[in-house]
């Protein structure tokens, strides 16, 4: 499957510098730097509660009042309005049909809906027959495919995904990874996951996060084209390696 709906402009890279982000009783980030290279998938792995999601939400502009954070895009334009967000929950509106859900962004912005594009995207995620269905009538995998189509509909150069496949069963998850890898070609992607295998199949750069304030490891960079084959020896070896790093990160957090 190819994607003829790549981002309309060339991919951009993003660099984040968080001087300090503190909550009431603890400091989460201090001197954190993260680079998202243009057109590449950057994966964040780490124990739960370490701050992966906060980092993603920071980039998405979902943390109000965050100061001392600099986000710089390679084309020098501001980041506002250039990120698409996909979460662990599909976040489909239960009162809208699948097609209406794909068109939600346009509706919220008061723009004319591009129905033809939405139908094309539904075709690419294999949901043409369900365009008029309500989300509640779809399986978990189908709902997440609808969410992927909605994310693509936004046509943003930066795609932020927060454990988007973690609630799916093993088979649906692998299929969704393949589909996302194909359809998001040409975009800069940040993927938060707790699954080392997922990171190894999809990531160009994999960072392990640990400790408090958060420390971000140097990127682990698997070889080959995404989505990598499940039998790929690099993937299998990398998994053992990543699990070791994760376990070390977990102990560091506990210490």
């Amino acid at each position: 499957m190819t994607n003829d709906l790549t981002a309309n402009n060339s991919p951009i890279s993003l660099s984040l510098q968080a001087e300090r982000l503190a909550f009431d009783d603890f400091t989460l980030f201090e001197g954190v730097e993260l680079e998202l290279p243009a057109g590449a998938w950057t994966c964040l792995l780490g124990p739960s509660g370490v701050g992966k999601t906060t980092l993603l939400r920071l980039i998405a502009g979902l943390i109000p009042g965050a100061e001392n954070i600099s986000l710089h895009c390679s084309d020098n334009n501001p980041i506002e309005g250039r990120t698409a967000y996909m979460a662990q929950q599909d976040l489909l509106m239960p009162w809208l049909s699948v097609l209406e859900n794909i068109l939600l962004g346009a509706k919220l912005r008061g723009e004319a809906p591009d129905k033809a594009k939405a139908l094309d995207l539904l075709d690419q995620v294999g949901l043409t027959a369900n365009a008029e269905s309500l989300p509640s009538s779809l399986s978990g995998g189908m709902r997440q495919r609808a969410a992927l189509a909605r994310t693509l509909m936004e046509d943003r150069p930066l795609v932020l995904m927060d454990e988007p496949f973690s609630s799916l069963d093993a088979i649906s998850r692998v299929r969704m990874q393949d589909l996302a890898a194909n359809l998001l070609t040409g975009r800069t992607v940040l993927l938060v996951t707790h699954d080392p295998l997922e990171a190894l199949r999809l990531g160009d750069r994999i960072h392990v996060l640990s400790g408090r304030p958060v420390h971000i490891d140097d990127a682990f960079m698997p070889h080959g084209q995404r989505p990598r084959d499940l039998h790929d020896p690099d993937v299998l070896n990398g998994q053992a390696d990543l699990l070791e790093r994760l376990s070390a990160a977990d102990q560091k957090g506990a210490a």
Partner: peptide, 17 residues
């Protein structure tokens, strides 16, 4: 649902919409 509001925010929705 807070997730729905987050999604709307990344879609540049106004408060009214």
């Amino acid at each position: 649902e807070p997730g729905h509001l987050d999604l709307a925010k990344t879609m540049n929705a106004t408060r009214w919409s």
